[in-house]
Design a protein around this nucleic acid. Structure first.
Lengths: 193, 193
DNA sequence: ACGTTAACGGACGCTGCCGTCCGCTTAGAT
DNA sequence: ATCTAAGCGGACGGCAGCGTCCGTTAACGT
């Protein structure tokens, strides 16, 4: 559908739309949702009006950008579910989600909280929740996961992971890795190993 | 010193100063550092000019407010150090710090990051760090704490705790409690009990 | 090549915040 | 009761970000 619309655009408009999305992706990832629209436009080599012509509001742009990131989340969880070792799959999901969120400031906002008008993100979110539920159940069956751990705990950890506000990305990612390791320790049944 | 200055103020000015501090405490706690100065003034029943006459800048006001909260942090840590059961003291510090930070949005900003001009807060911060170091060492000696846990891990957990962005305070506090429990599990040496 | 029309971007208006100024008010000393 | 200076707050200017308008440019069908 998005492609059909892009197809009807003139070639320069289509290019600019892509440039805007790329710029938004980079800036949202690096500095969170609070980057000014003008700066996205500037980085895309485009005037503000052009940006607003394609994306009527900041939320609309964010919805499109974070929709992509959401798909990355889904992919990670599904790969974890596909892991023959359920516990290992669970751990790698926690680790990789934490890292993804550390690399994308503001992705957590899309994941846990809700954007004003981003209805489609809510659907992605509930789908991710369902998948996470499967993951937790599957890991629980192995006995390696503490029996009282729920999906909410994962979401809590993800939200908390977003509290790591270091400015430099490398610092953020390192801290996030340590944090993921802590979280996994907290989730693991001590008597299982 | 602060009292000496207040003493020289006219009675109405002194009252208003207190009202402003009370309002700022409440609003910073409830909604974080981003509340408008006007709103603090309004809540204090005071004009903007009055507020700015007492606190030349927003940071100055925040420094004064969070200075008080800082003292609460110190008290918590010192009580933990005074606990005859070192491990129990350690746990209660983690729990109580998490809860305090959950009740005070933006306190973590003062605690871990640095305000532009809040020099005096930095001193409080390093003092808190030293105390936390003592706490960790003391808990480590009991063998209940995993030997690789450092002060940085506590700070990391505190920062992460601040990522719990629920709007309603009761929700935030509950989530924070669960989070503290998770953190303590992660810190505890599994073979020790 | 050329005309039509989509697309562009600089300039604009609006809102919300910070911090200041200045004419009026009132505490508190005499 | 009076006076004076400390104190007050509404109104102001400035800045930054969002979203829009309109005169100009250039894509692309013929």
């Amino acid at each position: 559908m998005a492609e059909r619309m892009s197809q009807m655009l003139r070639s320069d408009a289509r290019d600019n739309r892509e440039h805007v999305l790329d710029a938004a992706r980079e800036l949202f990832a690096a500095r969170g949702f609070d980057v000014p629209m003008r700066e996205i436009a500037r980085r895309a080599g485009v005037g503000p009006a052009t940006l607003y012509r394609r994306f009527a509001t900041k939320e609309e742009l964010a919805a499109e950008v974070f929709g992509d990131e959401m798909r990355a989340c889904h992919a990670i969880i599904e790969e974890g579910l596909a892991d023959p070792d359920a516990w290992h799959g669970f751990c790698s999901v926690v680790e990789r989600l934490c890292e993804l969120h550390a690399r994308n400031r503001g992705l957590t906002a899309a994941f846990s909280s809700t954007f004003p008008r981003a209805v489609d993100l809510a659907a992605d979110r509930t789908r991710a929740m369902r998948l996470l539920g499967d993951l937790v159940r599957r890991a629980g069956d192995t006995g390696r996961l503490r029996p009282d751990v729920t999906v909410d705990d994962i979401v809590l950890v993800l939200a908390a992971n977003n509290g790591i506000h270091a400015t430099a990305m490398s610092v953020r990612v390192n801290a996030s890795r340590r944090f993921a390791a802590l979280a996994i320790r907290a989730f693991e049944e001590p008597e299982s190993r």
